[in-house]
């Protein structure tokens, strides 16, 4: 259970480890995009977690990185094809960031640091914890930016109509500012505990 929980809070990939910042900043203009990106990452982490921990004893350590990359790339491509076939709108919105999950350091990082050293059950728990932690981070960041930039969350109006949309928050600069504010809030909560 510890393996699952740590990804959510104490080792949250976005707010604590600061891993995978490229998609984090790029796709979180809306909460929905954050969620879909997060789900794709969960899928990739889950399948790589299973496969890497299953074959961890067969793969010689000299070629472990290329092997992981092939496995990750395969699973990312599957996720990409799935999105294109079933949710073309979301696939369009996420653009190149779905294929870019291949080089997302969370996944290679977990494969190297955790999946290749632990059994399958612990690897699955770790993968789900990290994936869900990442997804929550993306939804919070996406929701925050969408709220300030458009007055909506998941396209549902939250702020009244006279709210002046602060467009800065849907631009790249706003991504950095929002991430900074949220990490600050997250850390002040952590310190109180």
């Amino acid at each position: 259970m510890k393996d699952f929980i740590k990804g959510l809070f104490s080792q949250n990939p976005i707010f604590v480890l600061l891993l995978g910042m490229c998609p984090t900043l790029a796709v979180t203009t809306k909460a929905l995009y954050g969620l879909s990106m997060g789900l794709s990452v969960i899928f990739v982490l889950f399948t790589t977690g299973i496969i890497v921990s299953l074959i961890r004893k067969i793969v010689p350590s000299e070629v472990r990185i290329p092997t992981y990359i092939i496995i990750i790339a395969t699973s990312v491509t599957v996720a990409d094809i799935f999105l294109r076939a079933n949710y073309p709108e979301i696939s369009k919105a996420l653009g190149p960031y779905v294929p870019l999950i291949v080089v997302n350091c969370i996944i290679l990082g977990r494969a190297e640091a955790f999946f290749s050293r632990h059994n399958i059950i612990r690897s699955i728990l770790d993968a789900l914890g990290m994936g869900i932690g990442f997804t929550l981070g993306l939804i919070i960041l996406g929701g925050f930016r969408e709220l300030l930039a458009n007055g909506t969350i998941f396209d549902i109006r939250v702020f009244p109509n006279w709210y002046p949309n602060i467009l800065l928050f849907s631009l790249p600069g706003g991504a950095f500012i929002s991430l900074g504010i949220l990490i600050g809030i997250f850390n002040s909560f952590k310190r109180k505990k």
């Binding site: 074959i55 067969i58 793969v59 010689p60 070629v63 290329p66 092997t67 092939i70 496995i71 790339a73 395969t74 491509t77 599957v78 094809i81 799935f82 294109r84 076939a85 079933n86 073309p88």
Partner: peptide, 24 residues
Amino acid sequence: VLTIVSFLSGFSLSYIWKISYEKI
């Protein structure tokens, strides 16, 4: 190991592409 992993990955990808291509 690398050959087998690459082969399996290529094989599964081409299969998935084949069943999704029409839908796309």
